[in-house]
Design a protein around this nucleic acid. Structure first.
Lengths: 237, 237
DNA sequence: TCCCCGGCTGATTGGCGAATCAACCGGCCG
DNA sequence: CGGCCGGTTGATTCGCCAATCAGCCGGGGA
């Protein structure tokens, strides 16, 4: 921090350093105490900045949350869309890809993901600002379209409702991540994350793909063997 | 205090009518605007009761929510526990049973379920009162135990993490219900609910049960045929 | 009849925290 | 050097809402 950074010149791209400090602090505080459970003063303190400055960069508390969420969510969605709408991918690849995107986001910035899960996916709806709610629902709809297309090509069982498939996939990913966020999974190592990601994708795919054994299945068995003794499961006989 | 009730006669079992009116109103209002998004005045108005009376029956706003949640959740949990811990049931029956319990609860009182999902399952954690958070996590742990036992008897793939299985099952049910609560599913008829419940249980089971085809599978196909033309799937353009 | 008592009422209070604002600082330009 | 200006500060204001409380009402008992 604190290289003077050409005040008068350029700086157009360089979004104020301070602003970003505040944004970062907001993520951390929101993750720790939740949006409603914290005051602006907390964010300011965390950022090491005067109370009033927060209002210099953000219209109000809600815009602060909105900004945090918008940036995080749009990144996630665009990555996910790229995977879901690339028709070079099989359904299986798409599902795996989506799980990848979600878990990678968590690996990179767990606290930001926590905020997204808490304040977007699980926002108390109702009177709540519609935009967040809407963004989430739109994402599910996008996935539902993906599944509908997969049904047309026979990659997905015809007897399933695409919308419900989408809900299920997101439910699985969301609660999977929540298990980490909430501390239900004690082992939070990258390997544990990787294992969880695989289990989620595998289970989901086995559940919705036509026919009995999938290539996923084979790949999984392969993986299991090649990685030597599995670290966790299977200690009860 | 106040086991007085039964002013003139009998009524011993009859928990104050008023109290229940208020509780009911609280459920409706919480479902509509969320706990944080409503004031006590809203609850009082909905109940057609004076503001102060709410405080006559409940210590404070939080106890009101606590009571709503406690009653609803404990009912759900005990039903679920009965299913999950009845060792006469196969894993498949247990999973189906749990889905039954959840969806039946929704059918009977959607708004109460909405509140539970919003304020228990998806509460912003953090500084939040721990009890709700805890109740939810405990329930997941209970399911995890169920899956661990199923692994011991070979009813569940050995390569899966029981805790993750539990999270996945709840994720599937929760988001499945959320799809209805949030209006993603336009068709909210009892039949649509029933279909969703089946799809969730089927998909989940196919995903986690050892071997390729399950009895679930057979039963499902059976069901499909005997019920004539499937009501919904397959008319996508 | 009158009084007592518990359920009930709703205006009032108190505290909290979002949002404002007047003043301050230090660089830069004329 | 002096005045301007954008970024920065934090005490102050203001509205909102949970929680209180003084008192009302109606029935039942003496």
């Amino acid at each position: 921090m604190s290289q003077r950074q050409s005040k008068s010149e350029a700086a157009g791209n360089r979004e104020s350093e301070r602003r970003r400090t505040i944004l970062r602090a907001a993520i951390d505080v929101f993750a720790r105490k939740g949006y409603h459970g914290c005051r602006i003063a907390d964010v300011a303190r965390e950022a090491g900045v005067a109370y009033g400055l927060v209002y210099h960069y953000f219209k109000n508390k809600d815009e602060l949350l909105e900004t945090v969420v918008e940036t995080g969510w749009s990144g996630f969605v665009s990555r996910m869309r790229a995977v879901a709408e690339d028709e070079g991918n099989s359904l299986e690849q798409k599902v795996r890809g989506i799980a990848d995107v979600a878990f990678e986001a968590y690996r990179v910035d767990p606290r930001a993901v926590k905020v997204l899960i808490l304040e977007v996916a699980r926002s108390p709806a109702g009177t709540q600002v519609v935009s967040r709610q809407q963004a989430y629902l739109d994402t599910i709809r996008m996935a539902a379209d993906m599944f509908a297309r997969a049904q047309a090509t026979g990659e997905l069982r015809a007897d399933l409702d695409p919308m419900l498939c989408a809900s299920l996939l997101f439910g699985a990913i969301e609660l999977g991540l929540t298990a980490f966020v909430s501390g239900l999974m004690e082992d939070r190592s990258p390997e544990a994350l990787e294992r969880a990601k695989l289990q989620i994708a595998e289970s989901f795919l086995r559940g919705v793909i036509p026919g009995a054994a999938t290539s996923a299945e084979a790949a999984w068995k392969q993986e299991k063997v090649s990685s030597g003794t599995r670290p966790k499961a299977g200690k009860r006989s």
